[in-house]
């Protein structure tokens, strides 16, 4: 995605650029669809986790041991959630790559001069969030600590 890459694109014929743009567009559509499907999966897992959390909350009122059994179930669902979120980041990076290539090719075709600041501007907000937030949002540390906070907060 450097100047060299941009210059390479600039040397390609219009017909080949059209073909390349079409291919990246197809990949973009494919990865966007996969992302949507993964987001739905994540939503389902989050709903399951929420149901279990409520069950554990209710259990805490009457039986602490029973709610620990639920905590174990939550641990597996949360693991699945972490897996799904991690896969989503890879899908997102691929979608972003193809999206950016489409934009760069269109720029070259339109005679837009290379500007690294403009490349930075292409990084969407969701990608910035990914960079800033995903370490905290995906690591398993303190999972049951979180559960404890959830239970305390919800009780």
């Amino acid at each position: 995605m450097s100047r060299t890459e941009y210059q390479k694109l600039a040397k390609i014929s219009k017909r080949k650029l059209d073909k390349l743009e079409y291919e990246h567009q197809q990949h973009l559509t494919r990865f966007s669809g996969a992302m949507e499907s993964k987001v739905n999966h994540i939503n389902e897992l989050e709903r399951s986790l929420e149901k279990l959390r409520k069950k554990a909350e209710r259990g805490m009122q009457t039986s602490v041991p029973k709610s620990l059994g639920t905590a174990m179930e939550m641990r597996v669902v949360k693991s699945d959630l972490l897996i799904a979120k991690s896969v989503l980041t890879v899908l997102r990076s691929n979608r972003f790559y193809h999206r950016m290539m489409v934009i760069l090719i269109q720029d070259v075709k339109s005679g837009v001069e290379y500007d690294p600041r403009r490349i930075d501007d292409l990084i969407p907000a969701e990608f910035s969030e990914l960079v800033e937030g995903s370490v905290l949002s995906t690591k398993m540390e303190g999972l049951l600590g979180e559960l404890k906070s959830d239970l305390e907060g919800g009780a």
Partner: peptide
């Protein structure tokens, strides 16, 4: 292009 991308568990 983007420094320090975090890919979760990956």
């Amino acid at each position: 292009l983007v420094d320090g991308i975090d890919y979760g568990l990956f």
